[in-house]
Design a protein around this nucleic acid. Structure first.
Lengths: 143, 143
DNA sequence: AGGATACTCTATTAAATTAGTAGGGATTAG
DNA sequence: CTAATCCCTACTAATTTAATAGAGTATCCT
């Protein structure tokens, strides 16, 4: 599994906040029960997203979480990286351990895999997910 | 890290066998010392590749490992999957747990990530790596 | 003011995975 | 027959994952 539950749960939560963008905060309980995720665990994931500036919180009664920016300004990559760390297939692409930059056949492959992933996650915004979702929902409703 | 050492080491070893394709077996010791990988550990990885039919072995003195097919017939994806399992971002794409096929916004993203990865690993053959490598080696030699 | 609701923060932990280590057994060239 | 190799299984230390637990702080509402 390329993504752990951190990235998977976190992306679901971020999508939920995007769905409710502009409608005030959504509580942890609402999200965790809708997606069937442990409340305390999801809380830790949302804390990471908050610390990285992607979501804001309102404390107290009727409080909850909300996106700190428009869904059109937050990419899937931002969310996944905030939770999973750099999305790289091999430490030699992100770290200092690999010294054979030029002459490494496997490195070329790892770079291409990384590009393939980044191409998706950096070009998809939460806003795109919302649009795509409402489109699918309409199609399902027709049948 | 998307790939564990299993996939990374295993791909390096497979590449090494591709480099030596047609020249008889290459011993475990040769590969593990060249790439600085634990001999016993690499052996376990090569055993997996053998059981899946990608490599053959010759036992006894002067024995070793060799590709069971031409480098042009073995993809990077075959090697990585043999060692890492299915390269999928989320269990909902490979397993039976996810039941909301149609109406799942995050699933769409996971599918696209998977396609991005597969596009690279299923279209790159060990033979391509060998060609690419000798090209780079020539360029380096010029300078 | 006070209670209920909701986020904040830190510590702990069970389970799984990773990345080996270890060692005895079988095979074969010379 | 012996040294070089592969074969196979068991064990283990370290790390990561996926929570669980609970005490603390802020805010709304009455």
């Amino acid at each position: 599994m390329i993504l752990s539950t951190k990235g998977r749960y976190g992306l679901k939560a971020a999508f939920e906040l995007a769905l409710n963008y502009g409608d005030g905060p959504v509580s942890l309980k609402t999200i965790s029960s809708k997606y069937n995720i442990s409340e305390n665990y999801l809380e830790q994931l949302l804390a990471k997203l908050r610390k990285q500036g992607y979501i804001e919180t309102v404390r107290g009664v009727n409080g909850g979480y909300m996106l700190a920016r428009k869904p059109e300004e937050i990419t899937v990559g931002m969310i996944l990286r905030a939770l999973e760390g750099e999305m790289t297939p091999s430490e030699c692409l992100s770290g200092e351990t690999c010294t054979r930059e030029l002459v490494c056949a496997t490195r070329v492959i790892f770079e291409q895999i990384e590009m393939g992933i980044n191409n998706v996650i950096d070009n998809t915004y939460l806003g795109d997910m919302v649009k795509q979702n409402s489109k699918v929902m309409r199609e399902v409703a027709k049948q």
